[in-house]
Design a protein around this nucleic acid. Structure first.
Lengths: 107, 107
DNA sequence: TGCCTTCATGGTTATATTGCCATAAAGCAC
DNA sequence: GTGCTTTATGGCAATATAACCATGAAGGCA
């Protein structure tokens, strides 16, 4: 790989990696509806609060969410509208894979 | 997490995970220009041939690329147009992060 | 046939990720 | 002040990922 291209692809991969865990996708989906604090998301995700906190830190480091302190609570919000494009792409791949599976079964 | 939602998010995450490595992003970018065989991509990526082969297997398992045998060569191609949406999303996040960085420095 | 190219896969090691528990910091109420 | 809530972080164990090397299978050609 080109030495100039490498950091570029690494930066992209860091973003994609933040989007590559089911719990983080769930949290992002929920945050797209409305802003939420950690304890609400802990309930939603059904895993330990520390686990949720770490997932949110990963999303925050990637620049995907923002956090605002409200008293003792941390309220998170999505930081970009562009996630639509990402989710649509994933859905399209899943649909396509499903269709391919059905063709195999049907043949 | 809802027991019904879980497999859904896991399926999404599998696709996203396939997109979360710099070498795989490079390969996909190259394949968006034109179909390529493994040896060409090995040259491009600058890593071991077996490494490229494994990365391609991951992309194939995710349904992101297709492979066609041509003699002793395996020619890969992108399998969905939707990747534009994905890449645009990543670029938007990167741009936004860069802008935020500049604001911090500039303040 | 023999030789070369192309590719996929098993083995191994190093590193990264993920989950929980325990804990500590900070805000709020009393 | 004491408590309770909310959150972030260190520690640790289990698992996953990724790189290389070595090898073997299959195609093409002389």
């Amino acid at each position: 790989m080109d030495a100039f291209a490498q950091p570029r692809y690494e930066a992209r991969a860091r973003i994609a990696k933040a989007l590559s865990h089911p719990t983080r996708l769930l949290l992002l989906d929920a945050l797209r509806q409305k802003d939420l604090c950690v304890c609400e998301m802990t309930e939603l995700a059904g895993v330990d609060q520390s686990t949720v906190s770490k997932h949110l830190a990963i999303l925050k480091d990637a620049g995907l969410v923002a956090v605002a302190k409200r008293g003792s609570m941390s309220v998170f919000s999505v930081r970009c509208q562009c996630l639509d494009g990402f989710f649509r792409c994933i859905e399209a791949v899943l649909e396509q894979n499903l269709k391919a599976q059905q063709e195999i079964v049907g043949s």
